[in-house]
Amino acid sequence: MASQNPVDNTSAPGKTKWDRVQEMDEFRLLILAKKEFVIPATVFFVVYYFLLPILVGYAPALMSRKVWGAVNWAYLFALSQFFVAWAIAFLYVNAAKTFDKYGAHILETLKKEGYDDRQDGKEGL
C-alpha cells in the first residue's frame, strides 16, 4: 500500500530521523513522563466529573442538604468542578515544562548529528 502515498520516503534504506529519535533515551523518558501525568489525570477528572451526575441523579436528597444558607452540596460540588478543572490544567502546564525540555534536547541532538528539521516536514500531508 506504500505506493498510495505520493511522497513516501520512509521505506528508503538507512536510518531515518524518526528511527533515530525512537531509540533515544530522552524520547523514552518523554513518553514515560507524559504517560505518568496524563493517564492518572485523565482517570481522575473523568471519575470526578461523572460523580456529579451520578450523585445528583441517584442521591438527590443527600445532595440537597444545605451547607450555607440556601447553598447545598449539589451546588458546591458542581462549582468545585470548575476549580478542579483549572487546577488540573495548571498542574499539566507545570508538568509540560519537563516535556518541553526533553523535546528541545532531542531536537538539539538531532541537529548535532546532522539531521535537518525542515527536510521532509510536509511529507504525507
Partner: peptide
C-alpha cells in the same frame, strides 16, 4: 508510520 507519528506528535519534529 506509527513510530514516525509518535515522534512527530510528541516532539514537534517536522511540524508545520
Amino acid at each position: 508510520r506509527f513510530e514516525e507519528l509518535e515522534v512527530r506528535a510528541n516532539t514537534g519534529l517536522g511540524s508545520e
